[in-house]
């Protein structure tokens, strides 16, 4: 049961990038870690000593791919999204990895009824676009999320979503905040299930009745 419910624990891991997986055949590029930029909020405006740092991604991840060379076999290079997509015709109707037969085939997609190009920009796969066509860089991708999830963004802005570390009192120190992508895979944003690893060991405590096991 536990094995089947393989669950990711912890935060600070860019779940989106590590769950995509790479098949040995090379049909799926393995993403590298997303470069992060420290986005700073609020400090100058409030005149407080501490700052709030959001753990935001700086740019689109590079993908390590093997490029065949005639003489020396294969070499590995870090390629941007555009490297491949520049030579392919965008398909506006694609809405799932299952529809793709070369790359991204194993990608799990569960994010409403969106198509890939609802967020990804067909003219520049290293960036995104809003509904009105405005370009959004990876570093500002929270704006893209906000377009649909305004309520969550408002909660986030008030410290009521996403958690934080450091100081509650910004006059005494700084804090760091998670970014949307720290906890949510943009292609399947539901928070992953977890297995509790730390339980109290009470003498003489008895479990109540039977519990609904997760579906297997």
């Amino acid at each position: 049961m536990i094995l089947r419910a393989v669950i990711l624990l912890g935060v600070g891991v860019a779940i989106a990038w590590t769950t995509a997986g790479l098949t040995q055949s090379g049909s799926e590029p393995k993403p590298g870690p997303a470069p992060r930029a420290a986005g700073q909020v609020g400090a100058a405006a409030t005149g407080m000593a501490g700052t709030t740092t959001i753990n935001a991604p700086r740019a689109m991840p590079r993908v390590r791919v093997s490029v065949p060379r005639s003489a020396s076999g294969e070499v590995e290079v870090d390629a941007s999204c555009t490297t491949c997509h520049a030579t392919r015709t965008p398909n506006a109707t694609t809405a799932s990895g299952a529809e793709l037969d070369e790359f991204h085939g194993g990608m799990m997609f569960a994010h409403g009824n969106n198509r890939c190009l609802a967020c990804h920009d067909a003219t520049d796969y290293d960036a995104f676009h809003l509904a009105d066509g405005a370009r959004v860089e990876m570093a500002d991708v929270m704006t893209l999320c906000a377009q649909c999830h305004a309520a969550k963004v408002e909660e986030f802005a008030h410290g009521a979503h996403g958690g934080m570390n450091g100081f509650w009192d910004l006059s005494r120190g700084s804090r760091t905040r998670n970014h949307c992508l720290d906890c949510h895979d943009p292609h399947a944003p539901a928070f992953p299930r977890m297995v509790p690893t730390f339980k109290p060991k009470d003498r003489f405590l008895t479990r109540k009745g039977e519990h609904a096991e997760d579906s297997r």
Partner: peptide, 30 residues
């Protein structure tokens, strides 16, 4: 001025802590 350990450890961000007397605090917004 630091946050409680349980709040920092919460992976879902469900916990909010703060000063009830500060009307700009996160807890007052909640």
């Amino acid at each position: 001025g630091r946050l409680p350990a349980c709040l920092e450890a919460c992976p879902t961000g469900a916990r909010v802590f703060g000063d009830m007397n500060d009307e700009r605090s996160e807890i007052r917004w909640i």
